[in-house]
Write a protein that binds this DNA or RNA. Sequence first.
DNA 1: ATGCCTTATTTCATAAGA
Length: 265
Amino acid sequence: MRLATWNVNSVKARLPRLLDWLADTKPDVVCLQETKCPDGAFPVAEVGALGYAVASHSDGRWNGVAILSRVGLTDVTLGFPGEPGFPDPEARALSATCAGLRVWSVYVPNGRTLDDPHYGYKLTWLGALRDTLEVELTGSAPLVVCGDFNVAPTDADVWDPALFTGSTHVTPAERAALAALRDLGLADVVPTPMKGPHPFTYWDYRAGMFHQNKGMRIDLVYASAPFARVVRAAYVDREARKGKGPSDHAPIVVDADLVPAVETF
DNA sequence: ATGCCTTATTTCATAAGA
């Protein structure tokens, strides 16, 4: 199975690139974040023409998550029980079963600044996600949580740790929230960078950050043991960050020796 | 060269991103 996750920063604005990328990369399952796509406007027919079924969860202007699959897409759940809101729940989590794998696509709140209520929301949201995953992980099915976590797990995951002092994405509390997910038995599937020493997945659009490789690793793949043990390789597709009209995030592609339990189509 | 911000909408300005 080839699994991928990508914060596309608007599925509408990215559609031509997304379709080309799907045709070239041929993932079986794709988790998307920041689809920014109002209900009913998701390009279902366009990705369907490439063989993908779609589950999407949107709230209009911002946020939005989706899962594309060409190996089955069942038991779709929007959000999760007890999901915090700001003030109302947003479209930040979506789960489905694809070829026997329980797949989560998540877009963790940004947090904005340490003194902003959004930061507390971010921590509460991650805690609530942990509680829901704890319940799901009592099952025996392999599980993977993919998405834009908006947290750099270590100082090596930001291009200049000193510049992030006093900022979100790197605080002990945010990193502890990630550790609490790993403590459930989820393994961080660290992708190969393809270029340079750091597997960054995000580079700001401004000031030529990508071209100087001043990035962050904030998109993550957290795999339960039954999935982690069959992962063969993972890489950051930084080619997708190049050229005209890219997302500010690059996809992560994971290849695993997971035999689909259902027919492919 | 990969090349110096982009997206959405209550659009010609603002909010959000991280």
